[in-house]
């Protein structure tokens, strides 16, 4: 056969077919999947610390692991943490005196201070210790008011230290975020050529909710 053997037609459908009855077995297997995940290897425990000293005090035998993990959390905060053009914008979301100026490689912006970090041993083959930055807000307008949040807005409950269950997406790489200076630097030539200049009207808007949408009040 010289053609594709099978295609996942559900993936290709763009309109939900209201009359199509989904096989009941799908629902069952999905439910089983959720159960086995929550009780299985996908989840482990981690511990929230305020700073490096707290980690070392709790685990003197893991001082080096604390150090490495903490540095890693700082890096994630730099690359993927919330960033604002002005101190006041940042303080609206995180509260007074919670934000700092950050200049690096041509960047000049304001970021909330890392309020703590989540330290956990991954259940992968290397059993590495890892960490991600956590933030909290002192602004009563924020959904993260006295609550922990990761860079992508996942909440680890109330602002207190100690052991928590690690959400499985927490240690996945996060999109890097930067302050956009300007847009429209691509696409100018196309406007001058006929083919792309035509009508058509696309309604596939894709702005959607971004990773930043959860910070405001």
């Amino acid at each position: 056969m010289k053609r594709t053997k099978s295609i996942n037609l559900d993936r290709m459908r763009k309109v939900a077919d209201r009359f199509r009855v989904k096989p009941i077995a799908l629902g069952i297997s999905a439910a089983t999947l959720v159960l086995s995940c929550s009780s299985g290897r996908g989840v482990n425990e981690g511990e929230i610390f305020a700073d490096l000293a707290a980690c070392k005090a709790q685990y003197p035998q893991l001082a080096q692991e604390c150090e490495n993990a903490y540095q890693q959390a700082l890096r994630v905060a730099e690359e993927s943490g919330p960033k604002y053009a002005s101190r006041s914008d940042c303080e609206i979301d995180f509260g007074a005196r919670q934000c700092m100026n950050y200049r690096h490689g041509g960047n000049d912006w304001f970021m909330p201070a890392m309020a703590g970090f989540l330290f956990a041993q991954l259940l992968d083959s290397d059993r590495h210790y890892r960490a991600v930055p956590l933030y909290t807000s002192y602004s009563s307008h924020s959904p993260y008011y006295y609550r922990w949040s990761t860079v992508d807005g996942y909440s680890y409950g109330n602002y207190r230290y100690g052991r928590v269950k690690v959400h499985r997406d927490t240690f996945k790489p996060k999109p890097k975020v930067t302050k956009t200076i300007k847009r429209g630097g691509f696409g100018s030539r196309v406007a001058a050529k006929s083919k792309w200049g035509g009508s058509g009207g696309s309604k596939w808007g894709s702005k959607g909710s971004g990773s930043r949408s959860g910070w405001g009040g």
């Binding site: 960033k83 690096h104 490689g105 041509g106 960047n107 000049d108 912006w109 999109p175 890097k176 975020v177 930067t178 302050k179 956009t180 200076i181 300007k182 847009r183 630097g185 691509f186 696409g187 894709s206 702005k207 959607g208 971004g210 990773s211 930043r212």
Partner: peptide, 15 residues
Amino acid sequence: IGLGEGGFFTDLDDE
């Protein structure tokens, strides 16, 4: 597509 600080290209969510 945007030009972000640090010389990156960005999407509409600044990612």
